[in-house]
Structures are given as structure tokens and as C-alpha cells.
Design a protein around this nucleic acid. Structure first.
Lengths: 143, 143
DNA sequence: TATTGTTATACTCTATAACTATA
DNA sequence: TATAGTTATAGAGTATAACAATA
């Protein structure tokens, strides 16, 4: 029996709604694939941002991915306990923590990047459409 | 002090990551504005889909917005207790519940639609870019 | 036996308050 | 006084298992 058509009405004019629905379509596969490396998406994101931004501190990292300081602290506790990152006090301002990947963390990140890239699929879009989409989305959240 | 540039590296090539970041940029305002009508975004979404799809049942509604049957049941319990929807058994198949807006629910929906539309803003996009974005996102999740 | 929906509950994620240490 | 980070905890959101009613 063919699924009847659902009319999403004005919701398809909402960027918020459409972003969420597209995200929910894509993310289960990413979760599943990263799960094989014992990583949640947010943990992979953190590894990636630390890798691309040496000496980033917790505040800027949390602001970038919209994780509050308390939740960032516990998230990083876990990643550190797994031996993936190290935290050291900034010598110029000992309040802040400077983050870096350990060799183990860097190795896992490289594997995870390959996995996540393969898992982030949009089969209904052409390559051009996908690039166009990424460009438009980026305009929304990059400051 | 200007915020230093953060390099999001290959993450900006991930549709999943970019959809989530764009969603997180947009949704707080929607939440805030709908909150004035005592509605959460998911509740507004439910009212909208029931409005656009008379006689939809809980299963199809839940599949559309990716809410599991147990969570759909409690979500609809709440909306029904607020007097916004009515549930009646399908006479042709008494297992399923047919959903409809009450007059009160329809009235609130109309207000909420106006509010949500105004709140869903993307100031960094032109009108053309926004329409292009909506079209691309829709291709991902519409089956 | 299969399907729709419900109840109960566990789990995860996110938000808030109070705190330490450093500046 | 202000800022970076932490601890503890509450609240919201999501997932799972067992069940009732109907087909």
C-alpha cells in the first residue's frame, strides 16, 4: 500500500522546520557509523574543531557548537578520560584551558573523519546542489 | 575584542552538521515567540500538520515528524488536554485515532502560524537564496 | 498474527544555580 | 568585580519494553 501524500503546508516555508527535518533524515546514519568508533556526533565534532583550531579554549569551542560551559566540561571530561584530548592551563591566563588532541585522539579523528564523510549522504541531491546547499546553510550560522 | 576566526574545517562539508548549526541559529527565536502562545515548536508543527491533513492518524503524523508512537501519545494527550485537538476512533478501523483541530485549536494555529512565520528569519540570505535553500532542504527529507 | 495506540520507565540531552580559581 | 571553568542537579526530550484493543 503506497503511503498517502502528506501535505506539510506552510511548514516547508520554514527554514527552521526544514533544517530539522533534513538533519533528522541524515543523522541516524552518521550516528550509526561513528558509533562503530565509540564516538557520538558531538564528540567527533569536538575532535574536529580541536584539530582545526590548535590552542582553542573551552569557551570558544562551546560557543561555536552551542554547548554550555557546564555541559562542555563534562563532555570534555569523558573525551579526556578516553585519552583523546589533553587539557592544559593557558600560561598567560591560568583560568582558561587549552585543548589539544593526543596522538591517539588524532588517529581516531582521522578515521572518524573518513567515516563521517562517507556517512553524510544526500542521495537526492546532485553534487552541485549539495555544494549550493552547504554554501547557503553556512551563510546562516557563520558569523 | 573581536572574536577570533574559528576554522570549522571539513565540518562545513557535512550537511548534517550544517543543518544542525543552522537550526540552532534559527530555533531559539521561534521557541521564544511561540512560547508567548504557550506552544512549543513541536506542538505548533502538530497543529499545522493536522490542519493541512484532515483525518490524519497518529501513526502517519508521527512518521512525518519522526516522533515515536509512545511519545506521540503523550504529546497529543497534552495538546488534547489543552482543548486544541480531538481524537476519535476511525469507524473503518477502530485501532486508529483520527485527529482534528477543535475551533480553539484552529484559532490558536492561525495565530501561531503568523508568529512562527515572522520568527523564522534568515537575515543573511536574500529572498531568492532562502527559496533556493528551502527547495534543496525539501528534496532531502520529502519522500 | 499483525497493527494502532497506550502506559510505564529508562536513558540522554540540555539548562540552571552555586561554586573555585584566576584575573 | 569579572571571567573561565567546574560540580551538582533539575528539567526536557527521546528510546524501549510490555501491554490492550482491534484487525
Amino acid at each position: 500500500m503506497p503511503a498517502d501524500h502528506i501535505d506539510q503546508g506552510t511548514l516547508t516555508q520554514s527554514v527552521g522546520y526544514c533544517c530539522l527535518q533534513a538533519y533528522l533524515e541524515i543523522v541516524p546514519n552518521i550516528k550509526k557509523q561513528l558509533g562503530k568508533l565509540q564516538l557520538r556526533p558531538v564528540e567527533y565534532t569536538v575532535l574536529s574543531l580541536i584539530n582545526s583550531n590548535p590552542n582553542i579554549n573551552q569557551k570558544r569551542l562551546g560557543q561555536t557548537i552551542r554547548v554550555s560551559p557546564p555541559n562542555m566540561a563534562t563532555l570534555l571530561d569523558k573525551i579526556q578520560a578516553d585519552g583523546l584530548i589533553e587539557r592544559r592551563r593557558n600560561p598567560n591566563d591560568r583560568r582558561s584551558q587549552i585543548l589539544a588532541l593526543t596522538p591517539k585522539g588524532h588517529q581516531l579523528y582521522l578515521k572518524a573523519e573518513a567515516v563521517a564523510t562517507r556517512a553524510d549522504i544526500t542521495p537526492t541531491l546532485t553534487d552541485d546542489e549539495r555544494q549550493q546547499l552547504l554554501s547557503l546553510l553556512t551563510k546562516i550560522f557563520q558569523n
